[in-house]
Amino acid sequence: MAISDNKYDNSFKRRSKKLKWRLIAENYELYLFLVPALLYIIIFHYIPIYGIQLAFKKYMPLHGIWGSPWVGFQQFEMLFNSPSFWRLIRNTVWLSLYSLIAGFPLPIILALLLQHLPNALFKKIVQMISYAPHFISVVVIVGMINVLLAPNSGVINHLLAILGFERIYFMAKPEFFPSIYVWSGIWQRLGFGSIIYMAALSGISQQVHEAAIVDGANKLQRIWYIDIPGIIPTAIILLILNAGNIMSVGFEKVLLMQNPLNMSTAEVISTYVYKVGLQGGRFEFGTAVGLFNSLVNAFLLVLVNQIARSYSENTLL
């Protein structure tokens, strides 16, 4: 994930500009290797970025995006004055923060538990099984949520009934939506999320642990003083990446989990863009909402990166 690589050789630095051009000519094939990727990224990412100007225009399909007239910030005024605006923001931020707060520490804990498991076979079994849900598609996950939580036939409600509780129509109650979204996500990604921490843990020298054992440290002490400091760099980078996505909750899953009864907590910015902008045909408004969303994301990423930078050297940008 490191972005720059400045390890030029010394000899390389001293080369003149002329030699630089010769090197480019010599390696022209390397640039040809980049052509498909650059073409793809320019067409499918940079042209839509150019299309963002639509947020400030009145779209006339016949004239194209470029030829449509400018109208200024009226779409944004409409967005900020819309009664549903704050509800959208609240829902979006809450879903993301809840996912982050609940979902961030758990893979770390799982990795630590697995790392200190004495039985290698049991460790393998837990790993094998916990990674698997990661590969289930979001459509199937939501289908599973629906059938498991169904009011009359769902097994959760049968278990509630057996234990003497009342049956709950979970998917129809807005107050349950964030928890169902977050915990099903944790169910799906906990195991796979732990792999990266397992990698970080395996990078810690076994000798440090052995020395600590000789000094009489127990497992909890070793986790606290050896393992956790060892995985903090990884954790910070993942935290920064996650923070940059606070405003982009999983569009597909939220959309699939929505029904007319849970909309008060289930409508988020991305699903709103889809419905109003695309299905409703209000392209300018949809673009404006999308731009607002991207800007907040970019701002959060930079902010968290700055905060991380002032506390340690482990930063992304």
Partner: peptide
């Protein structure tokens, strides 16, 4: 890398 963090969004991509 820039495209990992910033994009045009749904509608401009759809129009494209």
């Amino acid at each position: 890398v820039f495209t990992m963090f910033f994009g045009g969004g749904l509608i401009p991509t759809f129009i494209l």
